[in-house]
Design a protein around this nucleic acid. Structure first.
Length: 466
RNA sequence: GGCGCGGUGGCAGAGUGGUGAUGCAGCGGACUGCAAAUCCGCGUACGGCGGUUCGAUUCCGCCCCGUGCCUCCA
């Protein structure tokens, strides 16, 4: 099955072919580390994690680069507000980011470069741009001169006239053209800064990605991803810098952008204050797996309205799948499924993902596989459907834990597993004695503590129903 | 003003020029001491108005509503 991906540059789904057979380079814009990641920040991480898993399955060599922006004016401000050293803030926030993204079941990228460790390369690119007449120094700043690039604006499909007409900010006096953007800016003594040919300063927002993608993936690579709001100006400017520094070579072949997470229809954003952090939801007791699935229930280019109800629906789906896995019981000796058998069952899920990451359709195929597992009557059918369900789950990055653990979980409060099992034994004895009043009393007592009992095949199992 | 996205059954959410996914919720049935889970069955859903077509939710036009970007933003 071929892989089709929607390319923002062409505005249509295109058949994907790696630039070099068997090798794929993927660059995704990572976090600016000054605060906890919210669900809107998490969406691209989860979406591109699914892409990464798919690419790894389809191609022998995949290099996934996701940067950490650890120099930025928001960081300077947050550190000042906290009375915290910049480095302490960025280290702390980056560590929290790693924890939270791991909780969402995302694989770490192959390379996670930090902006502050690539200043030299940024300066070199800026020097090249100045030398080629695409950039100029003015009042300690270095700016990219947008009119020097005739085909600027292809990604966002904006003409330079429109940019000027729509400019909503005051144009700095040192700009030759209103659309020119900053490559390097001066730092005051208390701001972080590096020596450069233009004095002590720090990089502008866009140049870091040009430096890091170029270093790890080369001048032209396969896929560049990020959120919709990065199309303009960030990615447009990244393209301008990189192409003008590289003799016009394209930066990335495919540009992918995920849609926004909204709350009651409005974009979730830090400035609006309508955000849920991943950490907050995890603390409330939502599983990272349910958060992840909630983010995958809408197609990645569609807006996703986030709500706790959506989270509960995702959990219900996971309950259904884990129930199927748990009910199937242990695999009998000597029964196994062949790779070909599993692949056949996995095919629809894979085909859905290969069609521009149609995760909602893939989710429906997981439901189909769970249904097949529930209906399986022979050990070989069970083993086959179970293996296929697990493999399909792995494509989405879910169903990675043991089903018993999913249901019995780590209870931070309430009854321990030992207490529960003792109560179940007492109830089983009562049932054997046909003392159903006592059996029901125990069931009710456990239910009040959030424990649901299920009598099946002569054995009683339990789960926490939070 | 420029550029863009969306409006599918109670909810979430795919998809398609013609037998209208999937899940949740709801209803009925099987199973169960009772439940739960599971299985079986059940729904005159495609914002409005025109057009193209034998046939449109799907293509085209206009309109309405919501929403995003236009140098903080995933």
């Amino acid at each position: 099955m071929p892989l089709d991906l929607y390319n923002t540059l062409t505005r249509r789904k295109d058949r994907f072919e790696p630039l070099e057979p068997g090798r794929v380079g993927l660059y995704v814009c990572g976090p600016t580390v000054y605060d906890f990641a919210h669900i809107g920040n998490a969406r691209p991480v989860v979406v591109f994690d699914v892409l990464y898993r798919l690419l790894k399955r389809l191609y022998p060599s995949v290099t996934y680069v996701r940067n950490i922006t650890d120099v930025d004016d928001k960081i300077i401000k947050a550190a000042a507000d906290n009375g915290e050293a910049i480095e302490a803030l960025t280290e702390r926030t980056a560590a929290a980011y790693h924890q939270d993204m791991a909780a969402l079941g995302t694989l770490p990228p192959d390379i996670e470069p930090r902006a502050t460790q690539h200043i030299g390369r940024m300066i070199a690119i800026i020097e090249t741009l100045v030398g080629a007449g695409h950039a100029y120094a003015a009042e300690g700043h270095v700016l990219f001169h947008v009119p020097s690039m005739p085909d600027y604006g292809q990604l966002s499909r904006r003409s330079q006239d429109e940019l000027v007409a729509g400019a909503r900010v005051e144009v700095a006096p040192y700009k030759r053209d209103a659309a020119d953007f900053i490559l390097w800016k001066p730092s005051t003594p208390e701001q972080p800064g590096w020596d450069s040919p233009w004095g002590r300063g720090r990089p502008g927002w866009h140049i870091e990605c040009s430096a890091m993608s170029g270093q790890y993936l080369g001048q032209t690579f396969d896929i560049h991803g990020g959120g919709l709001d990065l199309i303009f100006p960030h990615h447009e400017n990244e393209i301008a810098q990189s192409r003008c520094a590289h003799g016009g070579a394209p930066l990335a072949k495919v540009w992918m952008h995920n849609g926004f997470v909204t709350v009651n229809g409005d974009k979730m954003s830090k400035s609006l204050g309508n955000f849920f952090t991943v950490r907050q939801l995890l603390t409330e007791g939502h599983s990272g797996e349910a958060i992840r699935l909630a983010l995958l229930t809408a197609h990645y280019r569609q807006p996703l309205d986030f709500s706790r109800d959506g989270l509960h629906q995702a959990k219900a789906a996971l309950d259904r799948w884990y129930t199927a896995l748990r009910s199937a019981g242990p695999v009998p000796d000597g029964v196994s499924a062949t790779t070909a058998e599993i692949e056949e069952l996995l095919f629809p899920t894979l085909a859905a993902l290969e069609d521009d990451l149609n995760t909602p359709l893939a989710v429906s195929h997981l439901h189909e596989l769970a249904g097949q597992l529930n209906k399986a009557r022979t050990p070989s059918d069970q083993v086959r459907s179970r293996a296929a369900l697990l493999a399909a789950g792995a494509m989405l990055g879910v169903l990675g834990q043991d089903a018993e653990e999913w249901f019995k979980g780590a209870a931070t409060e309430g009854l321990s597993a030992t207490d529960i099992e003792a109560a179940i034994d007492a109830r089983t004895a009562a049932r054997k004695a046909k003392n159903f009043a006592e059996a029901d009393r125990i069931r009710k007592e456990l239910a009040a503590a959030g424990i649901v009992l299920e009598d099946a095949a002569g054995k009683t199992t339990w789960k926490r129903s939070a």
